[in-house]
Design a protein around this nucleic acid. Structure first.
Length: 111
DNA sequence: CCATTGACGAAGA
DNA sequence: TTCTTCGCCAATG
């Protein structure tokens, strides 16, 4: 299985995820595009599952800003995000228009 | 080698 | 708006 931070496509995804700053999140589809479609959104999920502790996998959410993990992992993910200042609305979703990470500012403007 | 399975997402119905 | 289908492709058994 792809070793995190070292080999192929998974390593590239992990490197990308490590660039996401604290308090920001990215979506699976967004990461998929950032690696030029070399891995589909589902593939990003595999990479996250294989991620080592040095990868901030918790900053990856689905396109609605929701958590796609389950049970304990989901609780951990939400806890980690809240701990770094990412707010959740009443639906348990992150406001992507505010917290979405934009690599290389194309034209982003914080809140 | 082959079938199944996703921590997803967009498009139809 | 909610549900279903399909694409996508590495990983697993």
């Amino acid at each position: 299985m792809a070793k995190p931070g070292g080999d192929g496509i998974f390593g590239q995804v992990h490197a990308l995820v490590r660039r996401i700053p604290r308090g920001r999140v990215a979506t699976y589809g967004q990461l998929s595009e950032l690696i030029d479609g070399r891995l589909t959104p589902v593939g990003i999920g595999w990479a996250m599952r294989a991620a080592t502790p040095d990868v901030p996998w918790h900053r990856v959410v689905n396109t609605r800003g929701g958590i796609s993990t389950a049970f304990e992992v989901a609780e951990q993910q939400r806890g980690l995000l809240e701990a770094e200042g990412v707010p959740f609305d009443e639906h348990g979703l992150v406001d992507l228009s505010r917290a979405r990470w934009k690599p290389r500012g194309k034209r982003e403007r914080r809140l």
